[in-house]
């Protein structure tokens, strides 16, 4: 794993630790795997949970791995059902960890997701720089 503290963001001593997962049944993991490698290249530490995770398994990983941020990939139009669940579960666990969503999300839903408390929404075609920037800003 390429670790470069300079690249991981100004003002931080340790690299950002990101949990990456897909909630539910959606099996489209191409994007999440590409993002995992992008974030590693940007000097972050990636905890890749992969497919078929539940809110519980994501929360457990965040606690166990002391993660700074959660990245969720969604391609099945389930974001409006799944986002409130993970945010509620975080609140119930007393965790203050930002959540970034990437995938196929209609523009009209972005504002709703942000009102719910999602830090950022990344669309298809987002560049490596944009993805890393969104993660950095979410933990700043």
């Amino acid at each position: 794993m390429a670790e470069s503290p300079e690249a991981a963001g100004a003002g931080r001593e340790a690299p950002i630790r990101v949990v990456l997962a897909k909630l539910g049944l959606d099996g489209h993991d191409r994007g999440l795997k590409v993002v995992a490698r992008m974030l590693r290249d940007a000097g972050m530490e990636v905890i890749y949970l992969g497919l078929r995770q539940t809110t519980e398994s994501v929360i457990a990983a965040v606690e166990q791995e002391d993660a700074d941020v959660i990245g969720l990939s969604m391609h099945n139009a389930g974001h409006l059902a799944l986002a409130p669940r993970i945010l509620q579960a975080l609140a119930d666990s007393g965790l203050d960890v930002p959540v970034v969503i990437g995938g196929i999300v209609p523009e009209a839903d972005v504002a709703t997701l942000k009102e719910l408390g999602i830090s950022a929404v990344l669309h298809p075609g987002a560049s490596a720089v944009e993805v890393a920037e969104a993660i950095r800003r979410s933990v700043a």
Binding site: L25, N76, G78, L80, A81
Partner: peptide, 22 residues
């Protein structure tokens, strides 16, 4: 997706939010 994965629509853990969507 629930049908493709062998899960019923009333499976509370896996199906909620995905029934009839894709």
């Amino acid at each position: 997706m629930p049908t493709l994965m062998g899960r019923d629509s009333d499976d509370a853990v896996w199906s909620a939010g995905e029934v009839g969507r894709a």
